[in-house]
């Protein structure tokens, strides 16, 4: 079958003649390791999640295991306010994080794209949190936010705020506190990608715009921004998916608390499957998360006219 498939392109251009002297199976052999790994450890788990979403499956209550139809989904949408809470929080988290990361990343990229003394060092320092892990970010910000020895103590020394303030355990401050911590390591991602794309803008365009008397703001709006559009659309989408799915930071920084205030949908799913062993229900929630991500991604690409007229 593999052979038949490879033969299906017979009239190879003359340039390819020598290539066809190698076995026709070669491309399949070359992708086989990757394909097998992805089938076994991505495709199969995904399918098993879909399968279990239609079943009751709980190792601690084996007598209830069995086909459940759409019960798990009904339970999520109709009877589980926590599902809605965590979904809303996830949406809020993704929108705020990605929006602010893009804004600051774009500004930073525009700044370090200028020519100035100390640019190389400035770039290196600005980008430095890029490779810091979620857990290490948490460790750093736990030290900063610590109520006894953290930054609030020194702010209080300076007359700002009061001693013993713990931003991470107060429901009114935990959201901005966590947002800032994640921004700290998230902004460099956008700054790097946008800077990479900025380097390919032709200088001639700016010069032509100047000849026509365009201000810097106008140049930014009519030259830079359209040029960056595809990169921005793609990186915001990838980042949004990543922010939605990523649990490292919130798991270690707040553990989803206080009082479940910062529990994202993936954290809730992890709680349901790992702690509550309610695997059927967790699978249904996972399926819902998949569908939401897929739907939002397609809608986003459509609405932004990705890869379309720009440039």
């Amino acid at each position: 079958m593999a052979q038949a498939a490879a033969v299906a392109k017979p009239p190879a251009p003359p340039r390819r003649r020598r290539a066809s002297a190698t076995p026709r199976r070669l491309p399949y052999l070359l992708i086989a390791p990757a394909a097998l790994l992805m089938l076994g450890f991505i495709a199969y788990p995904v399918l098993s999640v879909f399968y279990y979403s239609l079943r009751n499956h709980n190792p601690t209550k084996p007598w209830r295991n069995g086909f459940a139809g759409l019960d798990n989904f009904t339970r999520a949408f109709a009877h589980d306010p926590q599902f809605w809470d965590t979904l809303t929080f996830s949406a809020q988290w993704v929108v705020v994080e990605v929006g602010l990361q893009l804004l600051f990343g774009l500004a930073l990229a525009l700044i370090v794209n200028q020519t100035f003394v100390g640019r190389a060092l400035g770039r290196a320092l600005v980008f430095s949190p890029w490779a810091v892990s979620g857990v290490l970010t948490s460790a750093i910000w736990v030290l900063l936010y610590n109520s006894q020895t953290g930054i609030t103590r020194y702010l209080a020394d300076a007359g700002l705020g009061s001693y013993g303030t713990s931003w991470l355990s107060d429901t009114s401050t935990v959201f901005p506190a966590a947002i800032v911590a994640d921004l700290w390591r998230g902004v460099p991602f956008f700054a790097i990608l946008i800077l990479a794309d900025l380097q390919s803008v032709s200088r001639d365009l700016y010069e032509a715009a100047e000849v026509d008397g365009a201000s810097r703001l106008q140049q930014f709006r009519h030259i830079t921004l359209p040029h960056l559009k595809d990169a921005i659309v793609l990186s915001t989408l990838l980042r949004a998916v990543w922010e939605f799915n990523n649990v490292d930071l919130l798991y270690t920084l707040t553990g989803g608390g206080p009082a479940g205030e910062t529990t994202t949908l993936p954290l809730y799913i992890a709680n349901k499957s790992v702690d509550a062993h309610d695997f059927g229900y967790a699978s249904a929630l996972t399926t819902v998360a998949f569908v939401i991500l897929l739907f939002c991604s397609i809608a986003y690409l459509r609405l932004s006219k990705f890869g379309g007229d720009s440039k």
């Binding site: 992805m38 076994g40 450890f41 991505i42 495709a43 199969y44 788990p45 995904v46 098993s48 999640v49 279990y52 990838l238 998916v241 939605f244 799915n245 990523n246 649990v247 993936p266 799913i269 992890a270 499957s273 790992v274 695997f279 967790a282 699978s283 996972t286 998360a289 998949f290 991500l293 897929l294 991604s297």
Partner: peptide, 21 residues
């Protein structure tokens, strides 16, 4: 296409089936 789609598959949500495997 499979490569691109896999970018949307969250490892975090596959923990339990992966654990079973």
């Amino acid at each position: 296409l499979a490569l691109l789609c896999s970018q949307f598959v969250p490892g975090a949500l596959l923990l339990v089936p992966l654990f079973q495997i």
